[in-house]
Write a protein that binds this DNA or RNA. Structure first.
Lengths: 216, 216
DNA sequence: TAGATTGTTAATCGATTAACAATC
DNA sequence: TAGATTGTTAATCGATTAACAATC
C-alpha cells in the first residue's frame, strides 16, 4: 500500500476499471504488462496509468513493467475488496431485488444482512436466504447487527425520512439508487449514487448532439 | 437552444441533475431562481451554474435571475427528452427486467419496442406489454423497427458477440449494464455505462479511506 | 552493455472559481 | 436611481500529457 496522498475523484473513478482489466489479463495467463500495453487495452495513456498507480506506491519494475498478479493484488487491497461490511437493503421492489440478487450477493466487500420494505405484502418473502422485514424496527436491527452501509432502493418520496432514521442510528455510507441527493442534506456521509434516469438522459443528450452534428 | 460549443463531459454529467432540481423548484411553486440560490440547493457554486448554462445560451435576466419554467424547458430541449428513439433491451434477467419496468417505461426519450433473451424458458413471457423474443432474429427486428438504441443487460460473456451483431445492423448507441467496455472495441459508438459493481467498489474504497484516516 | 520501462518532475491543457462590466 | 444578478473575461486550480533520469 504505502503512500497516502489525497486521491482525486478522477483516480477513484478509474480504479475499479483497472481492477477489471487486470483480472482479465490474469485470466488470459498474461503475467507481465507494461503501462503502455495496459493503456492500449483500456484506451488510456501510459502516462496516466503510471501516474494513477503512483498515487499508491511503486508497483512496477523499470525495464520490465508490472507483474499482473501483484498489481491486481495491490489494487484489491487499495479498493479494500476483502473487507466485510454488514449492509442492509431498503426497498425490495424491482431494482432492489435485482441489485440484491445480481450485484450484492456476488460482491465481496459487503455482506447483505437484512432487507426491508414497508409494503406488508412483501414482509416475510425471501431474497436469497434473507427474509424481508418491515422498516418499523429498522433502527434496532442496524444497531444489533452493526450495519455499516445502507443500499437505498426506495422511491424518492421515502428517502428523506428513511435516510434520516438511518443517519440517526449512525449509518454514514450509502449506495443510493433513489433520485435524491443525500450529500446535499448530510455532509459527513459517504455516498455512491447510481442515478439511472440521469444516465439515460445523458445517453439521450449524446445521441441528439451526434444527430445534430450530422445535419451540418 | 442557440450556441453550440463542444460541451465538456463534466457539463454533460451535471445536466440531468440541473433538470431534476429545476423540476423540484417548479413543483414547489418557485417561479424564479438566481444562480446563487440554485447553487446553494445543489451544493455547487453560482459561477459554475452560470458557466454551465452559458454553454447553451443566455437564459437569465440580469438583476432578476432565471425563470424556473423557462430554464427547465430549455434544459429539457438541450437533453432532448422529448425525442422518441426506438430501443430494445437484451437480457431479461433480474437487472434487465427491473430496468425495463422501473426506468425505461417511465422515461420519455426512449420507446422500448422489443425485449430479447436467449433462454428458451423466457421466450413468450411478458415485460409490461412486450413479449420476450429469442435473440436469433434480432437483426431483422432491429431493421424493421428502426431501432436506435440497445440496452445491454446480458452477462459479460455474451456482450462481445451480441454487440457485434447489433453494430452490424447499424446500432450506434448503447446503454450498457454489462462489465464490458464497448468503447474499447468500437470508437464510433455512443455508450453510457452503468457499471454497478464498479460503483460498489468505489463505495468500498471510500469507506476504507475514511476508516484509515480515523486511525491517524 | 543496450533496450525497455519505470517513477517522477515539468509542461500543457482543461475545468473551476473569482471578478466585474453590462443591464434589468 | 440603487441593488441585484447576469453573461463573460481573467485568474486559479487541478488533471492529463510529455519528457527524462534512474535502473532493471
Amino acid at each position: 500500500m504505502a503512500k497516502r496522498k489525497n486521491i482525486s475523484s478522477s483516480v477513484i473513478r478509474r480504479l475499479p476499471r483497472y481492477y477489471r482489466f487486470l483480472r482479465d489479463l490474469d485470466k488470459e495467463g498474461i503475467t507481465h504488462v507494461s503501462s503502455n500495453e495496459l493503456a492500449k487495452r483500456m484506451r488510456s495513456t501510459a502516462s496516466q496509468v503510471r501516474q494513477d498507480f503512483n498515487c499508491f506506491g511503486e508497483f512496477g519494475q523499470q525495464g520490465i513493467g508490472y507483474s499482473v498478479a501483484q498489481l491486481r493484488e495491490e489494487i484489491e487491497n487499495i479498493l479494500g475488496i476483502k473487507c466485510h461490511y454488514p449492509a442492509i437493503l431498503v426497498g425490495a421492489g424491482n431494482i432492489g431485488t435485482a441489485i440484491a440478487n445480481q450485484v450484492v450477493f456476488e460482491n465481496r466487500c459487503f455482506d447483505l444482512v437484512g432487507v426491508f420494505d414497508k409494503d406488508p405484502r412483501k414482509i416475510g418473502n425471501h431474497i436469497g436466504e434473507i427474509v424481508i422485514m418491515t422498516t418499523d424496527n429498522i433502527e434496532n436491527f442496524c444497531e444489533k447487527n452493526h450495519v455499516m452501509t445502507a443500499i437505498l432502493c426506495v422511491p424518492k418520496s421515502a428517502v428523506d425520512g428513511l435516510s434520516e432514521r438511518l443517519y440517526n442510528v449512525g449509518i454514514r455510507s450509502f449506495w443510493n439508487f433513489s433520485h435524491y441527493d443525500l450529500s446535499v442534506k448530510y455532509k459527513d456521509v459517504i455516498v455512491e449514487n447510481v442515478h439511472l434516469s440521469d444516465s439515460l438522459m445523458r445517453l439521450c443528450f449524446k445521441i441528439n448532439r451526434e444527430l445534430s452534428e450530422e445535419d451540418n
